[in-house]
């Protein structure tokens, strides 16, 4: 399966990447996150406790199931307002 992954704010800057297509077998968002974490180096930022995520532009938890073609986003705690 292929998913469209987006990174925002400090994560986008740390990774030097705003988004990518990722191929693999990911039953849920956490499986995808662990796959990315295994790249090591700057990718360790995805191991932060305060990480937030969204699936198809809706906030969700890491155990949210994934389907091919989903848009997944990882970002630090939001700070608007």
């Amino acid at each position: 399966m292929s998913v469209n992954v987006q990174y925002f704010a400090r994560y986008r800057e740390t990774l030097g990447l705003d988004g990518e297509q990722v191929e693999g077998n990911f039953p849920n968002i956490d499986a995808l996150r662990l796959h990315l974490l295994a790249r090591e180096g700057v990718w360790e930022v995805l191991g932060e406790q305060s990480l937030m995520c969204a699936r198809n532009q809706e906030l969700c938890q890491l155990d949210e199931p994934l389907q091919a073609g989903d848009e997944v986003a990882f970002f630090p705690t939001v700070t608007g307002g």
């Binding site: 400090r10 630090p76 939001v78 700070t79 608007g80 307002g81």
Partner: peptide, 26 residues
């Protein structure tokens, strides 16, 4: 609305401070 906006809407502030640019932490 303000409480939910601050914790659920995807906005991020980056300040230009006297010590350089800095992302605001939640």
């Amino acid at each position: 609305v303000m409480d939910y906006l601050k914790t659920r809407a995807p906005f991020w502030k980056k300040e230009n401070t006297s010590a350089g640019p800095k992302w605001v932490e939640g």
